[in-house]
Design a protein around this nucleic acid. Structure first.
Lengths: 247, 247
DNA sequence: TTGACTTTTAAGCATCTTGCATATATGCTG
DNA sequence: CAGCATATATGCAAGATGCTTAAAAGTCAA
């Protein structure tokens, strides 16, 4: 190409001192997912103010100047659920112009995975609760998803349906090669429980034998020797997840 | 149930003050990658001011209030290279507190893939140029990478080495299941050229037969019937990429 | 013209993975 | 103790993968 065009005055000033010009607000939203009785659920919060009054959203908030994005996500999640040390990973950054009708807000979305047992203490009130995730597509297609409450489907406020859909797509893709299923199970679990988690996330059955073989061959599982009890059939063995630090 | 003083959505929007909190600045950085003679290269720009004076960076700039993130990335890339209609995808958002010593800047990073032929017109000056990417790890491990210029390795300014490393990790991972190799080749290409691109990105050889079989079986390639010429051995057939819209 | 040379393309085969079928093991229940 | 449901193990066919061999098609040199 020719030499770079000379910068406009605005471009120059923006580069020189970014604080002169207004910039978008920056928030963090978290899709906190869990698997409970073969259903994929997400933590949602009811809005009490306009816009989208009485509609549900993902927990979120603005990024402070003295915290990283990861810290902001962890802080918000702890504020809403009391939970600490949650598996939390950056998902995607959403920047549509009209995603918030009040002002320009760009949101860095995160997804979190939590074992249901840790959420038992969470009070399921009207304002904060777990809702079933309704995914209208198969595989890793993507697109907006809804939540199900009181036997009805609902759209989330803002573009949060889009964010949640992106989270579902991401974890479906990661399930194959990353040890994320363990995040949704208690410390000790059976292979059947692990398979249930995979099938719930993928919204389809998986071949049992090949699933077991792949998991056992992956060297990520440790047999405990202990067996489950209380089932009226042959009890399965409990496994634990080998933490990567132990490898 | 209504509040004692009901607030309409309109009223709320009018009274909302977007500037009650100070926000971080928001920028976009683009790792524009290309493959040339079996080497992975990235577009870098030399800084003329402090901080990091005379060091190289990825092209970037601030997000305007009236554009989406994708638009900002495309605008910046066009401003630096003159190129339009480039494959451009969001990569990750970087938010370390000290990533820019001047002020708090959060950067939404993108990566772009361009066929080298489209970059031939680009003048390789001292301030804007293509540099070889030096990746010190194999596979999809990740971490900072360097660039190579004048037979020496250099760190990029800011956290751009980290951004570039994330881009390399991402495309290595995507190569298996997404048709991104085509973005780095001209319209018509031979299977050997496609394999070269893959091997360059992965920094390792791949099995020729299995690569050919997988590509041909993927239904993404269309044989043109035309053969390459000017080689002193059996000429290979040219293929084109079947655009997903044609499927 | 012809044979040497190099690379593409094709075909054959052993090995590994995956999905499916079959068989055995184990604990609970009536 | 037989019946039942599920866990666990084994065998096998189909497909994918890596490697070997071979034929095809162009250039080059004698």
């Amino acid at each position: 190409m020719k030499n770079p065009k000379p910068q406009t005055e605005q471009e120059f000033l923006e580069t020189y001192d970014p604080n002169i010009f207004p910039h978008p607000s920056l928030s963090v939203d978290v899709a906190m997912l869990t698997v409970r009785q073969r259903s994929l659920e997400v933590l949602v919060i009811k809005r009490t103010e306009h816009p989208f009054k009485d509609r549900y959203t993902l927990p979120g908030g603005f990024v402070h100047l003295d915290e990283t994005l990861d810290q902001a996500a962890a802080r918000l999640l702890k504020a809403k659920t009391g939970l600490d040390n949650v598996f939390l990973e950056q998902l995607y950054t959403f920047g549509r112009l009209d995603r918030d009708p009040r002002t320009r807000v760009i949101s860095v979305a995160y997804y979190a995975l939590v074992n249901t047992e840790r959420l038992e203490a969470l009070e399921n009130t009207d304002t904060i609760r777990l809702a079933r995730v309704e995914v209208p597509w198969l595989g890793e297609v993507g697109g907006k998803v809804q939540i199900r409450l009181e036997k009805q489907n609902h759209d989330l406020a803002f573009d949060h349906g889009e964010i949640l859909g992106t989270a579902v797509k991401r974890i479906r893709g990661k399930l194959d090669y990353a040890p994320i299923g363990f995040q949704l199970l208690p410390e000790r679990f059976t292979l059947r429980q692990l398979q249930d988690v995979h099938e719930t996330i993928l919204a389809r059955g998986v071949n049992k034998d090949s699933f077991r073989r792949r998991m056992l061959a992956s060297e990520q599982l440790e047999a405990t020797g202990a067996l489950e009890s209380g089932v009226d059939y042959r009890p399965a063995e409990f496994y634990t997840f080998k933490s990567p630090s132990a490898l």
